[in-house]
Amino acid sequence: MNTPPDPGDSRWDDLLARARKDQPAPLDLAALQRSVSLEARRLASARRAEAPDWTALLPFRSLVSSCLAGTCAFTLIASWQVWQWWQVMPWAQWVVASSGGAP
């Protein structure tokens, strides 16, 4: 595939050569550095703020009371289940007999 020649003729080459010489005026470096620093600080504080957000979602008091409630419920259900199964165990009668009463 042949590449088409650049637009026009030598005038185009001259135009490009002149255009390449164009240089921008210098920018305000201090202002640029200030905006970069501000953005870096904003990002850093946003990252720091993420951790407290998680603790807000799971406050300590709620967490403790939820764990206590869960443990109590588990103990209650487990005890009831154990009591149910205890009576049908083949060795339950032997324990009852040897202990002289209910387990």
Partner: peptide
């Protein structure tokens, strides 16, 4: 209002950019 150095170079660059 554009600050710049060589006006001929600036004009050429503007023309190329415009295209």
């Amino acid at each position: 209002v554009e600050p710049g150095g060589d006006p001929a170079a600036r004009a050429a660059a503007e023309e190329v950019k415009h295209l």
